[in-house]
Nucleic acid binder design. Structure first.
Length: 573
DNA sequence: GCCGTTTTCGGCCCGACTGTTTTCAGTCG
């Protein structure tokens, strides 16, 4: 089994946790965490890079030592240092570190003083009242641990962006109505438009902060007040989502927005640039000595470290600072660049609206074209079309196009890729279409090699155009199937096929990282909503979000092209 | 453990809140 990047990253993170408990040099600990982030977020697999003879120490935050450790891990499946550390420090202490309120020092004390080496040990100790007797602990800390353990599952749940929006919207409205409040902005990973968010980070400006805080913690949906300070408070809502509110004066808005938007790694890097220029950057501004020299806007903050403003979606410490320094920031795609949607369904299969209704809805959104791509026959649960029904639909689209003005309906199909790599309908029918959208709906559990070859074989058919939702993941519900995306991308590039970024908020498949990989390889993608109703067409914005996180520009996306140019791109014959 | 238009050694972001403390350590983001 090839080693996945996540396995390497998880091991580095666990190692960092245990070293931290052992009291290792904090900067060494951070080095492991930084490396974990680089590996986790890298589009290509470390195993693949090594096989290609690449020097991993060229990657950011990976030096000679960690490059060697990754090589050992890939070759042997083992990280000897981790095994060494686990021999003297229980591995589960890394889990205990994830209990909110417990960090390395407390975990170390609990382990050394009370021999607590698991979550169950901790629960028992918290109930028995032993924890309060430890130096540095007390009654309140013990009660806090007991309470946090009730909700503790071992991993921090992340909610889908669309759900976070539903939770944030009324809360922002509520905060805006508080007297003295000027701006309310949801920052954090929400503003960076990550596909999921772990919490909501809300920034507000106000003349006086205390009254805002008092109203915030009194919000109807608050389940637990975790902290309640003058300028910062944290609560957990009934939905389980944690919300931080930070209030700053208006002159600090830009600096605070930058700080609260993150990512943490990006912030640290920007602050480090400041240090080199003898500047101190915090959430109140940019300071030269005691004097604030910037902070009202984010632009000011970046300018003081010699950089142009960087779009929030790029702030992941994935090379955006270097690109900004060198004047190479991408001109990210925007919703208005999209000229049409290339994947949607009608009542003919499992959609809710008719051909005409879908076409009208697309026209209302200013599109020049809309492709109808109902399911093919193999997807029986979705009432997939056989050849006869597809031919009938083709006729219906031709007749509709004669009546429509300003928008062109394209004839397509979401064609099932069967497990042996053949396509679900004969070429004699497919050739009557404008193009095909091909996807996997069954046999998700094939081994990586087989799954990859299945799609490669399908791609050999000249009527294969766009590979839809390429990993099949459903966020928080279904893991992606095992497939070599890089190989698929390379094959698509060679054959003139494209990959879809499916904009359904449950899918967002390709991921941001995969989009970046495609871009780096020179492969363009289609951003499509897979709409099953007219209102689903609005999911396009979620696709745009992820495309932007993947550094995509209009030229990297095929449905920013005119109909004429698009037809040319989709013609393989 | 990483990194270098000051450095191959000596740095490594910065502040708020809480609880247990008589001035600060731990945690978090």
């Amino acid at each position: 089994m090839p080693i996945h990047n996540t396995e390497i990253a998880d091991s580095f993170d666990r190692l960092a946790d245990l070293l931290e408990v052992e009291g290792a040099n904090p900067f060494r600990v951070r080095a492991y965490r930084n490396a974990a982030r680089t590996v986790r977020g890298y589009g290509k697999s470390m195993a693949e890079l090594l096989a290609q003879g690449e020097d991993l120490s060229e990657l950011p935050d990976i030096g000679k030592d960690l490059a060697a450790k990754i090589r050992t891990f890939v070759d042997t499946g083992k990280l000897p240092l981790l095994e060494e550390v686990e021999a003297r420090t229980p591995a589960a202490l890394s889990t205990l570190m994830k209990v909110p309120g417990l960090g390395p020092k407390r975990v170390k004390a609990l382990y050394e003083e009370l021999n607590i080496r698991s979550v169950d040990d901790l629960k028992r100790a918290a109930r028995s009242g032993k924890i309060r007797e430890l130096a540095g602990f007390g009654k309140k800390t013990e009660a806090m641990i007991r309470q946090r353990l009730e909700h503790f599952t071992g991993e921090t749940p992340r909610v889908k962006l669309i759900i976070a929006e539903e939770i944030a919207r009324p809360l922002v409205q509520y905060l805006k109505q508080i007297e003295g409040v000027k701006e309310v902005t949801v920052a954090g990973s929400y503003r960076r438009r990550r596909d999921t968010v772990g919490d909501l980070d809300i920034l507000a400006t106000a003349t006086r902060s205390s009254p805002v805080m008092d109203r915030f913690v009194a919000y109807d949906e608050v389940d637990e007040i975790i902290s309640h300070g003058k300028t910062r408070s944290t609560v957990r809502l009934h939905s389980g989502l944690q919300v931080d509110l930070r209030v700053v004066p208006q002159v600090s808005y830009g600096a605070a927005l930058h700080y609260f938007t993150g990512s943490k790694a990006h912030n640290i890097a920007v602050r480090t640039l400041g240090v080199k220029k003898k500047l101190k950057i915090n959430e109140y501004g940019v300071f030269k000595g005691d004097k604030r020299i910037a902070g009202r806007t984010e632009e000011e903050v970046y300018r003081k470290v010699g950089l142009p403003w960087i779009e929030p979606e790029l702030r992941e410490q994935r090379g955006e600072l270097e690109a900004a320094r060198d004047g190479n920031l991408p001109a990210l795609i925007r919703q208005k660049d999209i000229r049409g949607d290339l994947h949607c369904h009608t009542k003919a299969s499992d959609g809710h609206h008719s051909l005409r209704q879908m076409a009208q809805a697309a026209a209302e959104r200013g599109y020049e074209y809309l492709a109808i791509s109902d399911h093919s026959r193999h997807v029986t649960v979705a009432n997939g079309l056989d050849s006869k029904r597809l031919l009938a639909q083709i006729g219906a689209i031709d007749r509709l196009n004669e009546k429509l003005d300003g928008i062109k309906v394209l004839k397509a199909i979401e064609l099932d890729i069967l497990s042996d790599g053949t396509l679900d309908l004969p070429d004699s029918v497919l050739k009557k279409l404008d193009f095909t959208v091909c996807s996997v709906h069954y046999k998700f559990d094939l081994p990586r090699k087989q799954q990859t070859e299945r799609v490669l074989r399908a791609m050999d058919n000249r009527y294969f155009n766009i590979f839809a939702h390429p990993t099949g993941r459903l966020i928080n519900e279904r893991e992606p199937y095992d497939i070599d995306l890089e190989k698929i991308m390379q094959a698509a590039l060679e054959r003139g096929c494209f990959l879809e970024l499916n904009a359904q908020p449950d899918r967002l498949d390709l991921t941001d990282e995969a989009c970046k990989l495609a871009k780096d390889m020179g492969l363009r993608v289609a951003i499509s909503t897979d709409a099953h109703s007219t209102s689903d067409l609005d999911y396009m914005r979620f696709g745009i979000d992820q495309a932007r996180r993947g550094w995509l520009e209009p030229k990297d996306v095929i449905n920013t092209q005119s109909l004429k140019a698009l037809r040319k791109l989709l013609d393989r014959t």
